[in-house]
Design a protein around this nucleic acid. Structure first.
Ligand SMILES: [Mg+2]
Length: 466
DNA sequence: GCGACAG
DNA sequence: ATCTTGTCGC
């Protein structure tokens, strides 16, 4: 076995013993460069299950610097140690070592998704794994655990020191132009300069270097495969087959209405975007991209508190300041740009006046709004329907999931095809479209989750034909 | 004491 | 780490 632990220890089960072990093992750290010819690099990452304590580690072995796949390995186990910042290696270490042990070839360097010596006791995951395996190692973390740094320049390769208690313990390194840096620290048997050089060399068009990035992809793939095994032999849970009566036949126009009626009878009115101003609704439509409404409310509350919930205020606010306010909605840097792009359009074309905007007419508005950078079809339709009162049907992932599971169209169906599907079959009615979309969202979150499992409780059963 | 805090 | 939702540009 090419990777065998050169040091073995039992894994402590509590905080105090874990810290003591770190302090003991740390004395074995070698922090000068002992890498020679680097030809093979390995990356490791761990993936957890939500509902169980089973976790998986994936390892990929790649040629250096060409980054061609040489070997993959993975292992699973039971997580016994909780996640405690500073003690990550006690949670992820055991499975990671098991996966590493399955490699047939010995890597020259190991890359980990976490810190090396940039750690409260100078002994993060990468250092720990390096010492146990006796292989040079480095940490490439997505965020900082300890220390301070200045923002590096915006181009790939720019870096700044990460300083902790007056010492340079790592480096913020930009691996892609204009993308958040990663945080490099030496693990074991190499120095910071060497570590940063390897990470940059391994980074090919993504923020994360190939070894950790591909280990992450591998281990998530493995976990999902393994989790799917027990339930459906095929892997992914299969949606219910359309009933024989409907399969291949024409669907009655009334079926969408009967589904609406069933949802409305069950859930009642959803009161979506009732009291707020149209402007607030438009802001919300952009902020809610890829996030839940609760976080959007926090962001909007921040804007209100800052007196910034107006086109004027947002228009003149620096991007960074706006991003800070809308932080809770996620993707805040991108959304700050999108919000400003939309508001520039709104100010320049309509002077920030919703009434004037409405006069342009729904069809023209849809095209205009779609032309704004950051406004795609769903956001456009949300703005039109919920802020401007236009009769347009909003399609989202939930709509596709629910109706594709009943065979109305494939889940991969194009946005506009699905929109047309609904609009061709429903009366043109703003209030109906408004409520229907809200009910779809409600149903999806309640009992039509991505991971199928509550199909027995489906409210659409038997409702396909009116 | 309080907040920050890899994955 | 998990769960989950859009848009854009390369
Ligand atoms: Mg990880």
């Amino acid at each position: 076995m090419p990777i065998h632990p050169i040091i073995k220890h039992t894994w402590p089960g509590n905080y105090k013993d874990a810290v003591l072990l770190q302090e003991r093992l740390r004395k074995r750290l070698v922090l000068h460069n002992e890498t020679g010819d680097v030809r093979l690099v390995a990356g490791a990452d761990v993936s957890y299950s939500r509902g169980s304590d089973t976790y998986y580690a994936g390892v990929v072995l790649l040629s250096y610097p060409s980054m061609e796949l040489v070997e993959e390995a993975w292992a699973s186990g039971k997580a016994v140690f909780p996640y405690i910042p500073g003690l990550l290696s006690f949670r992820e270490g055991p499975v990671t070592l098991a996966a590493l042990a399955k490699l047939k070839n010995k890597p020259d360097v190991l890359l980990f998704d976490g810190q090396g010596v940039a750690h409260p006791r100078g002994f993060g995951l990468a250092s720990h794994m390096g010492v146990l395996t006796g292989i040079p190692s480095l940490g490439c973390a997505k965020s900082v655990l300890v220390g301070e740094y200045d923002e590096p320049g915006s181009t790939r390769g720019s870096d700044t020191p990460l300083v902790y208690k007056g010492e340079v313990v790592g480096r913020a390194l930009r691996t892609r132009d204009g993308v958040k840096p990663v945080f490099i620290s030496a693990g074991h048997m190499l120095d910071l300069e060497t570590a940063a050089g390897i990470v940059l060399e391994c980074s090919k068009g993504f923020r994360l270097p190939e070894p950790t990035r591909r280990a992450h992809l591998l281990v998530n793939r493995v976990r999902k495969m393994e989790e799917g095994k027990g339930h459906t032999p095929g892997g992914t849970p299969s949606p219910p087959t359309p009933s024989p009566a409907r399969r291949g036949g024409l669907r009655k126009a009334g079926s969408l209405m009967s589904i609406y009626d069933a949802l409305y009878a069950h859930y009642g009115p959803q009161h979506w975007w009732p009291g707020e101003t149209p402007f607030e609704v438009m802001v919300g439509a952009i902020l809610t991209q890829n996030t839940n409404w609760g976080n959007v409310e926090k962001a909007i509350a921040n804007l209100k508190t800052a007196g910034a919930l107006s086109a004027e205020a947002i228009h003149t606010m620096p991007d960074a300041e706006l991003a800070e306010l809308i932080r809770p909605s996620g993707y805040f840097n991108i959304k700050a740009r999108r919000l400003k792009a939309f508001i520039s359009y709104f100010m320049e074309r309509y002077g920030g006046d919703v009434g004037r905007m409405k006069m342009a007419g729904c069809a023209a508005l849809r095209e205009e709004v779609l032309a704004v950078n950051g406004v795609g079809p769903e956001t456009a339709d949300s703005i039109l329907l919920y802020a401007l009162g236009c009769p347009t049907f909003v399609v989202d992932a939930y709509t596709k999931r629910i109706f594709s599971r009943h065979g109305f169209f494939p889940e991969t169906a194009d946005y506009h095809d699905v929109r047309k599907f609904f609009m061709d079959r429903l009366p043109v009615d703003v209030r109906l479209y408004n409520e229907y979309h809200a009910l779809i969202v409600k149903l999806a979150k309640d009992r039509c989750l991505k991971k199928a499992g509550m199909c027995g409780l489906c409210l659409l059963t038997g409702k396909q034909i009116s």
